[in-house]
Write a protein that binds this DNA or RNA. Structure first.
Lengths: 165, 165
DNA sequence: CAGGTTACATCGGCTACCGAAATGTTCTGC
DNA sequence: GCAGAACATTTCGGTAGCCGATGTAACCTG
């Protein structure tokens, strides 16, 4: 059993659109997501080893880069995570100096999380390495594949929305 | 900050194809994969709660359903996992009675892993629930989205291949 | 048959999550 | 104006998902 990729030949992209066994889609989609997640994590580990930043933290930094200050609950809702999860992540990020937590003066139960300069810098460095890596992989695809991946992104988001409805 | 989905309106599917900031693709793709993984895991937890089967184990069962007996190393190569990871998973699966391990007579260092009847049954039940769930989500998409997701799968596999090259 | 190379198993360690319970705040209705 | 419901968050304990290093047979090769 070779570690063959299930990507098949290039011709697959256009092949077998009418028959399309329905049940297979579920399997293939799940497999694709799993493979991509693993590949992304692995390539990040090797490409950006000098300052390991867990992906979950990166994603929070990205949100914070655009909406700051933010409350724990808002971050959790946006990322579809439990608030306890986000709370823990933010705790680590504070220890790492990436973000700061202040009390929301309007509601003292809530916290206002903001990026620190270090956080912004780390995020920028990470994003740079990550984009470089992903762009290389995307560039290795042919134009048709690249186009279809790009075009599928909004649909994939909508699919995720339906899944956690 | 509402927990808005980044999927946007339906019109987004066709919108902004020419400008397409290149760097954004990396970010969006990563985000989509993360969201889908979380959504898939969560929906499995809620849809198939009566007999929790970790996804990593399911994937091994699926491979074994098609190539059996298999050696640990082959399974690992195929799934792009470390052999120690697969070894551990198989250990759990043996405890759960899903697979059996025998010594490969041709090479006594190697093991020959096979599905048990229980394993086959569990896999079938799982696949059924999972397909039902995913098909429902896919069915909630409009025809164009569904088509593009399906069409993008081979390209996504190829992208994963390039990533772990 | 000595030494190097496999094929695994085991260990320790980290990320990534979740749910339940505890704590302090705010908001209601009376 | 105050008891109690509703909230925002934290803490805790637990599971899943991975990897690398190390140890141990079993193989292979000169």
């Amino acid at each position: 059993m070779p570690p063959q990729s299930r990507s098949g030949s290039q011709a697959d992209t256009a092949a077998t659109p009418p028959p399309a066994e329905h049940g297979q889609d579920a399997r293939l989609l799940t497999e694709a997501v799993t493979r991509l997640r693993r590949a992304l994590r692995a390539s990040i580990r090797t490409d950006y080893p000098w300052e390991q930043l867990p992906m979950a933290q990166v994603e929070l930094l990205q949100v914070l880069a655009e909406h700051s200050p933010a409350r724990i609950g808002d971050l959790a809702a946006r990322q579809r995570l439990a608030t306890s999860t986000v709370s823990g992540l933010i705790g680590q990020m504070i220890s790492a100096g990436l973000v700061a937590r202040a009390v929301d003066p309007a509601d003292r139960r809530a916290s206002a999380v903001t990026l620190t300069d270090a956080g912004r810098a780390q995020l920028a460095a990470w994003a740079e390495a990550h984009e470089r890596r992903l762009d290389a992989a995307l560039g290795a695809l042919d134009e048709a594949d690249r186009a279809i991946v790009r075009a599928a992104l909004p649909a994939l988001f909508r699919l995720a929305d339906h899944l956690d409805t």
